[in-house]
Amino acid sequence: MSPSASTDTPAAPADRPRALRLAKLLLSEYFVLVLCVVYVAAIYPFVPEILTWQVASNILGDMMPLLVVAIGQTFVLIIAGIDLSITAIISMAAVVGASVMTGTNGYLSGSAVAVPAAILAMLAVGVAVGAINGLSVVRLNMPSFIVTLATRMFFAGLAIWYVTFHSTSSSIADLPASFTAFATGSVLGVPYTVALAFAIGVAAHVLLSRTQFGRWVYAVGANPAAARISGVPVGRTIMLTFLISGACASVAAMMYASRMQTGSPIAGENILLDVIGAVVIGGTSLFGGKGKIVWTVFGVLFLLLIDTSMKLLGSSLFMIYIIKGGVILLAATVDTFRHHLLVNR
């Protein structure tokens, strides 16, 4: 028999308000955002540039592909899965899209529909790999970690191979201007990429928090057996999260390809751990049932703030690695602590 929460011994009167305020802050949805603000305030004296428009827009530009992938990953993590194949999807989609629209020996070189067709092809790659992942998990009963590890290995390799049929170099260049304009152009002062990522973020947020499908995602992640008995189509829900993750990775591929003006099989190669790190820093659980899109936004922002400020400080790559690792560890420890607080509340 455990003591009930209501009979908890009260803390010493003087400590109580402060402890309470600290607990409230720790438990707040916006904890990571608060961390971001605190971090900027702390780092500002050393790198005042961090608050300049130039740097801010750089952070935004770096953030968008990462954010879009992280949004997709959030869905998969909430159903207690994981998608390691995202970087391979980005590579594969980038080279397939480029092979369609490149001006040099592209499938549709010079055609008016080249760019739309390429975009569709890129989306198709993401959805197809997502479908393989989802079907393997749902129908073949395979753990998502291994499925996506295998598809990651497969499509990362395939992307490199694919380029050899379309280019003499290691990537496919000569992309149409109308495509690369996506990275540079803006609408009403808002870069296209930011607008698109914002739209995806809002859509994902609404989908997760305000629709039946969203409730299903959480229910499946928290307890698939109970979800099934409540009439939730468990298999279809899992399937859809992998499709969403795949499609998001495709969108990130478009962003990378247009920015680099080339379809590279190593586009986004190194972002996997950043993505998972960012989502987890935001507070989404690896064990399913818990997570939010805004949390992911904050997590990505926080990781990039650290990244950028360290670069501005002239830190080398290794310093950034060390600090990033430390921050992920710290965030996870704080999250564990938060969890204890919530349980004992």
Partner: peptide, 15 residues
């Protein structure tokens, strides 16, 4: 199977 223990009463009620 009956409940999602980590959900609130309201969330379980409408599932």
């Amino acid at each position: 199977e009956g409940l999602i223990m980590d959900f609130t009463i309201a969330e379980n009620m409408v599932l």
